[in-house]
Design a protein around this nucleic acid. Structure first.
Lengths: 153, 153
DNA sequence: TTCGTTGCAAATACTTTGCATAGCC
DNA sequence: GGCTATGCAAAGTATTTGCAACGAA
């Protein structure tokens, strides 16, 4: 959560390939077929997919893409600022998030789902708290709240 | 044999074995030598150790303890509520925390340090927010705030 | 004595690496 | 054409599992 947070995720539906290509080159990466597909999969998959999940999605469109390439590519995306690595206490370690805007996470204990959540009011509340209380010699830049809970039926 | 203080900072607390034994049985676990040592190591190691780190600590006192046992035991601790699994985006996946009281994390961008932080006032603030605003059909049980920032010099 | 726990080692899951080739710019 | 990214496969970590032997209750 950047301390000046505002906006919401884009329409996550079917991103245009040309725009993906643009985002790649803008980030200083060559726009290869694989990278376009991987970026597309990242944006389309719900939650925070693992490399494995991204790969399963990508091979639907292009069966020759290897898992190793997915790993390398996701790392290069992180290095280029196109995606973030998020931690998970469950399952495989490395998970990726295409949404570089900071947001909070709701973790469902029952289904192990991770749901993105953002709320400017909450952000303001926490930001104000730090502004008035301070953290000693620690200067906060951004924050992210992890909420564990379960679905009410 | 106790974990020798040669390997530990003198400031680290040295929990009494009898109390550890009690905590284990209270949690419904048999108080084996291995479990006592592993629980002790968890409490004594700084930060959020990996299974590997716990194992390295345990074998100092009892060289026959296997890494597999450490994994199984840490999982049973989590199941019994004696410790928590915490996520880390860096390095090995599974990390463990002996402190079951919820707390927050300050992450120093410069030094990569993770500092534990707790503040009941902040907890109340966030809890109240959820109580009044709700999260749809999601019922929050616990939460943890991750703050990234840097030291002011 | 009983039944859960341990140690071991093999199996599996996850991730990285090296190198020849393919394909973007 | 130059040079980076890819595919493949093998190596390297991390974690889980199965089972006979052990030990706490």
């Amino acid at each position: 959560m950047t301390l000046s947070s505002d906006h919401l995720p884009s329409s996550a539906c079917q991103p245009d390939r040309a725009i993906l290509r643009q985002r790649l080159t803008a980030a200083g990466l060559r726009a290869t077929t694989q990278r376009i597909l991987i970026l597309e999969s990242l944006m389309v998959l719900p939650g925070h997919p693992t490399a494995e999940q991204v790969h399963r999605q990508v091979v639907l469109a292009e069966p020759t893409v290897s898992l190793g390439t997915v790993y390398k590519t996701l790392d290069s995306f992180v290095a280029a600022g196109l995606s973030k690595r998020v931690a998970s206490a469950e399952g495989p370690c490395r998970r990726y998030d295409s949404d570089c805007n900071a947001h909070h996470h709701l973790y469902c204990i029952d289904t192990k789902e991770i749901i993105d959540y953002s709320n400017p009011e909450l952000d303001a509340l926490i930001r104000d708290f730090f502004a008035t209380h301070g953290l000693g010699n620690f200067q906060p830049h951004s924050f992210s709240l992890h909420v564990a809970g379960s679905r009410i039926s």
